[in-house]
């Protein structure tokens, strides 16, 4: 029993413009020409592993977590770990593995009612960022990034490995500013299907997960 009681808290913190991203429906203010408002951030974190000396010591079962900046309780969860072990690193996937993507209806965070499933071309959306900026020459100045795709050539799942500083809690920052800086809001404000662009942008998405100082 005692072993099960040892847990590591993992908390994700989506940071934007110097603070935790707050999704507010009531953005009504006059935007400056270069403002970029982010009003949606969701992503799947899956297949979490804890590693020590290059060995995988912990593999979370049914490891699928949907992070949603609008629902703060989704941003942190706990992992069962072994008492007294100090792990070197955590490894996880951004997205949903291909096997699960072709295995039919799932429950929990993978339930297709969660708004993270393409209906016209089966598969999970791994990473969603949406918002508004006057620099986007689109309907209502919106930009929409729905990244996913599980089929070979442009399979968009990304593995992330980060060092572990403490065996009781870890904070992982999601640097939304960096994503917004690296994507092309002017020429590519919409990516909503699997393919070359989604693959390229998923690579960018994987680089914004960082250990908090």
């Amino acid at each position: 029993m005692a072993q099960d009681d040892w847990q590591m808290q993992i908390a994700f913190d989506p940071l934007y413009q110097g603070a935790t991203l707050v999704i507010d429906d009531e953005v009504d203010i006059e935007l400056d020409s270069t403002d970029v408002i982010v009003d949606m951030f969701r992503c799947y974190i899956s297949n979490i592993e804890l590693i020590k000396n290059d060995l995988v010591l912990v593999q979370e079962k049914d490891s699928y977590h949907l992070l949603d900046a609008e629902e703060i309780e989704t941003l942190s969860f706990t992992l069962d770990v072994e008492e007294g072990v100090t792990y070197d690193s955590i490894r996880f996937m951004i997205g949903v593995d291909s096997l699960t993507s072709v295995s039919g209806a799932m429950g929990g965070d993978l339930d297709p009612t969660k708004g993270m499933f393409w209906t016209w071309n089966t598969g999970y959306i791994f990473f969603k960022v949406e918002g508004i900026s006057p620099i986007c020459d689109t309907r209502k100045n919106r930009f929409v990034y729905h990244l996913g795709g599980y089929e070979s050539q442009y399979a968009a799942q990304q593995w992330v490995t980060l060092p572990i500083m403490s065996n009781s809690e870890m904070k992982i920052t999601i640097d939304i500013d960096e994503y917004i800086e690296k994507v092309d809001l002017i020429d590519m404000p919409n990516v909503m299907s699997p393919g070359k662009e989604a693959y390229k942008y998923a690579k960018i998405a994987s680089s914004i997960f960082k250990i908090s100082e």
Binding site: S103, P112, T119, T122
Partner: peptide, 14 residues
């Protein structure tokens, strides 16, 4: 376009 029978109904609904 749809890879599994379970997911088929999502397309016409949406």
């Amino acid at each position: 376009a749809i890879n599994h029978l379970d997911m088929q109904a999502l397309a016409p609904i949406a």
